[in-house]
Design a protein around this nucleic acid. Structure first.
Length: 171
DNA sequence: TTAGTGATATCC
DNA sequence: GATATCACTAAA
Protein backbone atom coordinates (compact mmCIF):
# COMPACT_ATOMS: atom_id res chain seq x y z
CA UNK A 1 0.00 0.00 0.00
CA UNK A 2 1.64 3.14 -1.19
CA UNK A 3 0.97 6.54 0.32
CA UNK A 4 1.93 9.75 -1.41
CA UNK A 5 3.94 12.01 0.85
CA UNK A 6 2.32 15.35 1.63
CA UNK A 7 3.73 18.75 2.35
CA UNK A 8 3.55 17.97 6.08
CA UNK A 9 6.17 15.27 5.65
CA UNK A 10 8.61 17.84 4.33
CA UNK A 11 7.76 20.52 6.88
CA UNK A 12 10.02 18.95 9.49
CA UNK A 13 13.72 19.54 10.04
CA UNK A 14 15.98 18.40 7.21
CA UNK A 15 17.78 16.11 9.65
CA UNK A 16 14.50 14.26 10.25
CA UNK A 17 13.27 14.29 6.68
CA UNK A 18 16.55 13.12 5.10
CA UNK A 19 16.75 9.71 6.87
CA UNK A 20 12.98 9.31 6.52
CA UNK A 21 13.21 9.70 2.76
CA UNK A 22 15.63 6.80 2.49
CA UNK A 23 13.62 3.77 1.41
CA UNK A 24 10.82 5.87 -0.06
CA UNK A 25 10.02 5.72 -3.76
CA UNK A 26 10.33 8.59 -6.23
CA UNK A 27 7.61 8.39 -8.85
CA UNK A 28 7.97 10.37 -12.05
CA UNK A 29 5.27 10.61 -14.68
CA UNK A 30 6.55 11.43 -18.14
CA UNK A 31 4.63 13.45 -20.68
CA UNK A 32 3.52 10.30 -22.49
CA UNK A 33 2.18 8.83 -19.26
CA UNK A 34 5.06 6.45 -18.54
CA UNK A 35 5.67 5.94 -14.84
CA UNK A 36 9.24 5.73 -13.59
CA UNK A 37 9.85 4.47 -10.06
CA UNK A 38 13.09 4.55 -8.13
CA UNK A 39 13.59 3.67 -4.48
CA UNK A 40 15.76 6.21 -2.69
CA UNK A 41 18.99 4.67 -1.44
CA UNK A 42 20.89 7.73 -0.33
CA UNK A 43 20.19 11.32 0.72
CA UNK A 44 22.10 14.23 2.20
CA UNK A 45 20.86 17.08 4.38
CA UNK A 46 21.84 20.69 3.79
CA UNK A 47 20.73 22.90 6.57
CA UNK A 48 20.94 26.61 7.21
CA UNK A 49 23.10 29.53 6.28
CA UNK A 50 25.76 28.49 8.76
CA UNK A 51 26.24 25.17 6.95
CA UNK A 52 29.12 25.99 4.63
CA UNK A 53 28.16 23.09 2.41
CA UNK A 54 24.73 24.54 1.81
CA UNK A 55 24.35 26.89 -1.13
CA UNK A 56 22.38 29.25 1.07
CA UNK A 57 25.46 29.86 3.23
CA UNK A 58 26.50 32.55 0.79
CA UNK A 59 23.30 34.41 1.32
CA UNK A 60 19.98 34.66 -0.40
CA UNK A 61 20.48 34.90 -4.14
CA UNK A 62 18.54 34.17 -7.26
CA UNK A 63 19.89 30.66 -7.25
CA UNK A 64 19.22 29.85 -3.60
CA UNK A 65 15.91 31.65 -3.45
CA UNK A 66 13.87 28.45 -3.47
CA UNK A 67 15.83 27.11 -0.49
CA UNK A 68 14.09 29.76 1.56
CA UNK A 69 10.68 28.84 0.23
CA UNK A 70 7.97 26.39 1.18
CA UNK A 71 8.64 22.80 2.19
CA UNK A 72 8.09 20.25 -0.54
CA UNK A 73 9.45 22.58 -3.19
CA UNK A 74 11.89 21.09 -5.69
CA UNK A 75 15.31 22.68 -6.03
CA UNK A 76 17.14 21.63 -9.18
CA UNK A 77 20.64 22.88 -9.76
CA UNK A 78 22.97 22.48 -12.72
CA UNK A 79 26.40 21.39 -11.52
CA UNK A 80 29.60 21.51 -13.58
CA UNK A 81 27.65 22.48 -16.66
CA UNK A 82 26.18 19.04 -17.28
CA UNK A 83 24.67 17.48 -14.20
CA UNK A 84 21.28 18.26 -12.70
CA UNK A 85 21.09 17.70 -8.97
CA UNK A 86 17.70 17.39 -7.33
CA UNK A 87 16.78 18.52 -3.85
CA UNK A 88 13.58 18.95 -1.95
CA UNK A 89 13.09 21.84 0.46
CA UNK A 90 12.19 21.01 4.04
CA UNK A 91 11.27 22.89 7.18
CA UNK A 92 9.63 26.25 7.63
CA UNK A 93 9.61 29.07 5.14
CA UNK A 94 12.54 31.51 5.35
CA UNK A 95 14.85 28.93 6.90
CA UNK A 96 17.08 27.54 4.15
CA UNK A 97 17.36 23.79 4.36
CA UNK A 98 16.83 20.91 2.02
CA UNK A 99 17.59 17.31 1.20
CA UNK A 100 19.64 16.21 -1.78
CA UNK A 101 18.68 12.98 -3.54
CA UNK A 102 22.05 11.41 -3.93
CA UNK A 103 21.26 7.93 -5.20
CA UNK A 104 18.53 5.47 -6.01
CA UNK A 105 18.66 1.70 -5.64
CA UNK A 106 19.32 1.27 -9.33
CA UNK A 107 20.81 4.58 -10.39
CA UNK A 108 23.68 5.35 -8.08
CA UNK A 109 24.79 8.97 -8.30
CA UNK A 110 22.87 12.26 -8.09
CA UNK A 111 23.23 13.16 -11.75
CA UNK A 112 22.31 9.66 -12.87
CA UNK A 113 19.12 9.90 -10.89
CA UNK A 114 18.03 13.11 -12.59
CA UNK A 115 19.07 11.74 -15.95
CA UNK A 116 16.97 8.62 -15.46
CA UNK A 117 14.02 10.56 -14.10
CA UNK A 118 14.40 13.17 -16.85
CA UNK A 119 14.45 15.99 -14.35
CA UNK A 120 15.97 19.29 -15.43
CA UNK A 121 15.92 22.96 -14.60
CA UNK A 122 12.28 23.32 -15.53
CA UNK A 123 11.42 21.49 -12.29
CA UNK A 124 13.16 24.08 -10.16
CA UNK A 125 10.58 25.74 -7.95
CA UNK A 126 7.99 23.02 -8.53
CA UNK A 127 6.37 21.07 -5.72
CA UNK A 128 7.11 17.52 -4.64
CA UNK A 129 3.86 17.29 -2.68
CA UNK A 130 1.41 18.57 -5.26
CA UNK A 131 2.93 18.10 -8.71
CA UNK A 132 1.21 15.68 -11.10
CA UNK A 133 4.56 14.91 -12.71
CA UNK A 134 6.73 13.90 -9.77
CA UNK A 135 6.02 12.80 -6.21
CA UNK A 136 7.25 10.44 -3.50
CA UNK A 137 5.50 7.36 -2.15
CA UNK A 138 5.83 5.48 1.11
CA UNK A 139 5.14 1.82 0.49
CA UNK A 140 5.93 0.80 4.04
CA UNK A 141 9.48 -0.33 3.41
CA UNK A 142 11.82 0.62 6.25
CA UNK A 143 15.49 -0.05 5.52
CA UNK A 144 18.25 0.11 8.07
CA UNK A 145 20.07 3.37 7.66
CA UNK A 146 23.74 4.22 7.91
CA UNK A 147 25.13 7.71 8.29
CA UNK A 148 28.32 9.08 6.75
CA UNK A 149 30.01 12.42 6.08
CA UNK A 150 28.78 14.26 3.02
CA UNK A 151 30.79 14.13 -0.15
CA UNK A 152 31.91 16.67 -2.71
CA UNK A 153 32.13 19.59 -0.32
CA UNK A 154 35.75 19.59 0.75
CA UNK A 155 35.75 23.34 0.30
CA UNK A 156 33.28 23.70 3.19
CA UNK A 157 35.97 23.41 5.87
CA UNK A 158 37.06 20.79 8.34
CA UNK A 159 33.95 20.91 10.49
CA UNK A 160 31.16 20.98 7.91
CA UNK A 161 32.66 18.47 5.52
CA UNK A 162 32.74 15.89 8.29
CA UNK A 163 29.22 16.34 9.62
CA UNK A 164 27.44 12.97 9.23
CA UNK A 165 24.44 14.27 7.33
CA UNK A 166 24.50 11.65 4.63
CA UNK A 167 21.99 8.84 4.99
CA UNK A 168 22.38 5.53 3.19
CA UNK A 169 20.13 2.46 3.10
CA UNK A 170 21.90 -0.73 4.13
CA UNK A 171 21.65 -3.54 1.67
C1' DT B 1 44.06 11.16 -12.08
C1' DT B 2 42.13 14.56 -15.23
C1' DA B 3 39.03 16.67 -18.76
C1' DG B 4 34.76 18.35 -19.88
C1' DT B 5 30.87 21.65 -19.20
C1' DG B 6 27.87 25.92 -18.41
C1' DA B 7 25.04 28.65 -14.99
C1' DT B 8 26.01 31.68 -11.23
C1' DA B 9 28.48 34.92 -8.48
C1' DT B 10 32.02 38.12 -8.04
C1' DC B 11 35.21 41.18 -9.64
C1' DC B 12 36.79 44.68 -12.66
C1' DG C 1 32.54 42.68 -19.76
C1' DA C 2 35.79 38.83 -17.58
C1' DT C 3 37.04 35.32 -14.53
C1' DA C 4 36.59 31.81 -10.80
C1' DT C 5 33.87 28.39 -8.73
C1' DC C 6 31.24 24.18 -8.43
C1' DA C 7 26.51 19.24 -3.87
C1' DC C 8 29.66 15.41 -10.78
C1' DT C 9 30.74 11.72 -14.23
C1' DA C 10 33.29 9.19 -17.47
C1' DA C 11 37.37 7.87 -19.33
C1' DA C 12 42.07 6.53 -18.73
Amino acid sequence: MAVKLTEEFFRRDALEVAPDLVGKVIVRRLEDGTLLRERIAETEAYRGEEDKGCHASKGRTKRTEVLYGESGVIYVYLCYGMHWLMNVITGEKDFPQGVLFRAGEVHDGPAKLTKYLQVDGSFNGGSMSSSPDIWIEDDGFRPDIETAPRVGIDYAGDYWKDVPWRFIAKR
